[in-house]
Design a binder for these strands. Structure first.
Lengths: 259, 259
DNA sequence: GTTCTATTTGGTAAAATTTACCAAATGAAG
DNA sequence: CTTCATTTGGTAAATTTTACCAAATAGAAC
């Protein structure tokens, strides 16, 4: 959607293209500098932050919808996406949180929203996504004021039930760490032992022995040492590594419990 | 629903009580005699089997809906229920699989279904449930021809995308074995070491040492030996055990990897 | 009552893995 | 060339897993 005409058409006729009563919200995680980050956007007319979300076309699968919605709202493509939970509490959306009048003042087209299909009770399918933070500079889409990374533990309260969504997404992410290529997607292609060590420590929320942890990764053949070093200032330059995708995905199938 | 009048009202006015476009299906698992079982029902007018399912009331949570639907279709109450995935492929329901004409012949009230909210595109929230097989004798509800346990590996093909649902539910069940009280819910209150050993072998699909496995359960304090034995014919009578719920749930929080 | 069979259960030793560290290597800055 | 912070090779002890053996037991057969 690029114009107000398209928005009006969406409000009035959107239910023909999209399935009513169902939306999809996506928690996008990144990692940088020992911190897990999450991408949230501020939408025009809403006095608060929320996860990027949207509606599902009648012709697409849920996975396809998730990819499209993320792209529309953040201009990011090709993310690793995973459905984790569907949210359906009857009181999950409190419309008073939305400053409708302010929105209508800005763009009168929104006056019609109050009696539209968009106001019907809606359940939402939750997806999480993970990405290499350094590769991504999110662009707000149409009707988005902003779209920014937040440290996961400095995230202000979100609108609707999106706090719960983040909490559950995070739990799913941690749970999946041993079975899905979470660490790989959070890291750049080439990374140091210290970086991968720190990713695991951050996600698991506990200390992992600085010597034994990387040693085990190498011993299991999950990562390959490159003949390249990174310059990290006045200290010994660490070697770079890549994932050995064959071994890594094989290990994920059984579960890699790195303790 | 007990009468055809109620069914007609459901077809015509159901969308006022239930959220359209969304249904909920439940894969109910049990365990007996070294076999994992699943409960499927044959509905009147459908030439095939499917998982017990239904629609979500506008006033209830998804978990509440799951409990209610399971009770309505199988007369079982108090099950351990877990949401595992939402299914939304646009072609997940092929209505030609449903023998509409045969249904309408039996009960003319169904003639109105063809133009009702029930024919709209629908996504379905998948739940699985686990229960002690021996405690449950399912009763078919209204409009159900039958409701029966099947060995999981002798299950005939199901209607719609319910084969996929069973497959994914099973995968979730196996995945959750270390983190949720699956084994406890599948077993009767009192069980023998051989029984719990066999549950884990069946679910994990691999052999677990007959001596080391139960020894570890006892060593970790997950189960308590009772001063009671079970008569198993001409062999040494095994002791009965119960779960030590304090230790067991504590261990589940961290994950019990029983290998 | 004794013997037989199938099953349960106590035990132990070897192998493998995890844990807890020490010390050497390294790269740049002063 | 010394200093400092960091990376990385190494090793020994502790713990857990694995692979078994052998004793105990309950009813059935003789």
């Amino acid at each position: 959607m690029q114009t107000f005409e398209e928005v009006e058409d969406f409000i009035i006729n959107g239910y023909k293209t999209y399935i009513p009563h169902i939306s999809l919200d996506c928690a996008i995680f990144g990692y940088h500098d020992h911190q897990l980050k999450i991408l949230v956007s501020q939408l025009e007319g809403m006095n608060g932050l929320c996860l990027p979300g949207g509606y599902i076309k009648r012709t697409e699968t849920l996975d396809e919808a998730a990819g499209r919605i993320v792209e529309e709202k953040t201009s990011i493509t090709g993310l690793y996406l995973q459905q984790y939970k569907t949210f359906g509490d009857p009181d999950r959306i409190k419309w008073n949180e939305l400053d409708m009048d302010r929105l209508i003042e800005r763009a009168p087209v929104f006056a019609k929203i109050k009696s539209s299909w968009l106001m019907d009770q809606t359940i939402s399918v939750g997806y999480y996504a993970i990405t290499d933070f350094s590769q991504v500079t999110p662009q707000p889409g149409f009707m988005s004021d902003s779209c920014e990374w937040y440290d996961i533990d400095k995230l202000p309260p979100l609108l609707f039930d999106h706090d719960q969504m983040v909490k559950d997404a995070l739990q799913a992410l941690r749970q999946q760490l041993y079975y899905a290529p979470i660490a790989e997607k959070l890291l750049p292609k080439k990374f140091t032992l210290t970086e991968i060590h720190s990713v695991y420590e951050t996600l698991l929320g506990k200390r992992l022995d600085i010597r034994n942890f990387p040693k085990k990764l190498v011993f299991l053949g999950l990562i390959n040492k490159l003949n390249e070093k990174r310059n990290i200032g006045p200290h010994r330059a660490p070697y770079l590594y890549t994932f050995n995708n064959r071994q890594y995905s094989k290990a994920l199938r059984k579960g890699i419990a790195l303790t």
